[in-house]
Design a protein around this nucleic acid. Structure first.
Lengths: 189, 189
DNA sequence: TCCTTCTATGCAACTCGTTGCATAAGGAAG
DNA sequence: CTTCCTTATGCAACGAGTTGCATAGAAGGA
């Protein structure tokens, strides 16, 4: 049910349509929770039916009409209730780690290219996060002082930055290990 | 389909029953991929039906019989094929981050306890990983030199250790931010 | 003696999430 | 003029994952 809560937070930060939410889930909020537009539309419909959200039909010129969703009173209540109940520390789902352990039963060197691809992807994300941090929080165009909401968004973004930095360092470690296994003769078991 | 591959890797490392796999998914492999016993039993059945796995009924004394699964030829092939096809860099699902952003619309201070709980859980996991590293890879009882499979298991474990260290540092940052927001008067928007 | 825990497997019902497809109007590129 | 991209919403089918429950023998503690 965490998608519901992510939607509530995003709509509290700024009301918007399903389409707009889907795009936010490719950026910002999506760094910590992903969803496709299908899922978002379905959940929005259910949440509106349950009275958590209010809809407003917005006619637009030059583009299709949209339904703008905003959080209703019970939606705020549902979010508050969730915030006060404890959640389990998340567990990772890291398929690359599975692949690396699997490489022992195949050719470890064949993974080098794949790991390099991931390395580039994480470097790109890091650059993107750092640009966002300068733009919204630490650069000259950023508001000062920050309000509570911005402070919290910033600390979450710092988590994303720390995650990408850690991952990049680890992928360097993985690459060094794969290359060592490729170049060194395998020791007898 | 990544659960299939995680199961293949785990069974190649050591054949075992569904029950044993479920316990491995609470430790070792489960640090990077989680699954309940229901899912494991269902997927094992399907994989056996598809010819990826072989089963052997093992009678035991003093406990129920078990079905020991091992990887069949086509299973090895399926794993190799997966290893050679590129996968998308994973995206996080971090509900605590959603909660932190949501705290802007509730009481940020109310999250302190929850974040401290997560801090303790991650510290415990880190201690657990470090103990495993000493036992299997760096301590006096560890084999030397390590073979390729052990080197790869070690680099994956180093990733888990780096992740926990990074998370603990970030949670310290989160706690400092929450306490600052609690103690400082909110600046006018 | 009863109650719980451990080993071991499984069904049924449900929600969550993905993939493929469909529609429809406007604008930009070729 | 056609093709592609963007905005905007949605259905249908499937696969992934969770939750609750059931069974059953052996061991161990209250």
């Amino acid at each position: 049910m965490a998608l519901e809560h992510a939607i509530l937070v995003s709509l509290l930060e700024k009301p918007g349509s399903g389409y707009e939410l889907a795009r936010r889930f490719e950026r910002s909020i999506g760094y910590f929770w992903t969803a496709t537009h299908q899922q978002i539309y379905r959940v929005l419909k259910r949440m509106e039916h349950d009275g958590l959200l209010a809809v407003r039909e917005v006619a637009q010129s030059g583009r299709p009409d949209k339904k703008e969703y905003s959080v209703a009173g019970p939606g705020r209540g549902a979010l508050a209730a969730w915030l006060h109940e404890p959640i389990e520390p998340e567990s990772l789902r890291h398929d690359l780690a599975v692949k690396i352990r699997g490489a022992a039963f195949d050719d470890p060197a064949a993974l080098v290219e794949e790991v390099e691809r991931h390395h580039r992807a994480h470097s790109d994300r890091l650059a993107h996060y750092l640009a966002g941090e300068r733009r919204d929080f630490t650069g000259p165009a950023a508001p000062a002082p920050l309000d509570a909401g911005q402070e919290l968004q910033h600390v979450v973004l710092r988590g994303g930055i720390a995650y990408e930095r850690m991952t990049i360092d680890w992928l360097d470690d993985v690459l060094a290990t794969l290359r060592r296994l490729r170049d060194a003769p395998a020791p007898a078991p």
